[in-house]
Design a protein around this nucleic acid. Structure first.
Lengths: 154, 154
DNA sequence: ATTCCTGCAAAATCTTTGCAGCTAG
DNA sequence: CTAGCTGCAAAGATTTTGCAGGAAT
């Protein structure tokens, strides 16, 4: 629910509401987050910004990602290896399929997911705030190149 | 499928099969992992071992956890804050309910979970290797103490 | 006997923080 | 103006690694 442009505006609103300033660095980070389809890392965002902001600091990217997380405007996807990636398009919990080879992230749309949260609440007595559902595997592209590499013996 | 004792033996088998030695430190770490119902951190395991192994090193705990992970005999639960907890009882993927307040982890048994993996494979073309499904919220105990603290004004 | 393991300390990552100067509103 | 932000460097936190001595099989 939201084109990149809409998301961009929505985030600007949130920032104004919460008395945060719209610095060029901040706007550029947001721009990347809402336009990128690739769930970038902080490092990747930093590198993309090097051209336009040669003095950009990693700390600034971190600080802005933290801010946007706290406003609920980006979703953090924590990898088992400890690295994190960010989604500014769909900041709400949703399932991911993550390629362990190339690190690509795809968002499959799963029905049948509906009331899992309700079930957990019922079974555990927890008040559920959020969740994550991530599938790890090998994407089609990487499967293909694997086969090209090894199975050529036929 | 598997009492702590069974799990313990199963892990010893795996170790012998893979030519790993059964050192006292290793056995003690496994013992904690299979008996603990609390999904301990490396740090916590380390502390529990201090009494019996005063010279125990954190690195040793880390190395053994890595080994057991690689054998598929412990499940790592990565927290959004970067810390990890470990489950030696149920080393296969299963849903968790995690209290963001006290860090308690509960395993709800969810039906309706059956063929999500198949759906993801179908929709994405990924070969799925594993997954994680974690719910974050506040457990009953913490909800209660919250209420005691604030809502007494009535 | 070997091979693998442990303990210690140093290194490696990734992320956060302190501070002085700068800037958006 | 003035609260909040940036850049830099230093500090933190967690996990990994190198190496020499030690232990399991």
């Amino acid at each position: 629910m939201g084109s990149p442009q809409q998301r961009y505006q929505q985030i600007l609103c949130k920032l104004r509401e919460s008395n945060h300033k719209l610095t060029p660095q901040r706007l550029a980070i947001i721009d990347i987050l809402v336009h990128s389809r690739s769930h970038p890392t902080v490092e990747a965002i930093f590198e993309m910004l090097q051209e336009d902001f040669p003095t950009m600091s990693l700390a600034t990217v971190y600080r802005n990602v933290v801010l946007l997380k706290s406003l609920g405007e980006v979703l953090e996807i924590g990898f088992p290896d400890g690295s994190n990636r960010y989604d500014g398009n769909k900041p709400y919990p949703h399932p991911h399929a993550i390629c362990v080879r190339c690190k690509k992230i795809v968002d499959p749309d799963l029905r049948a997911l509906g009331n899992l949260t309700a079930q957990v609440r019922q079974r555990t007595g927890f008040k559920i705030l959020t969740h994550r559902l991530d599938f790890f595997g090998v994407c089609r592209d990487c499967l293909q190149s694997e086969n090209q590499t090894k199975g050529v013996g036929r």
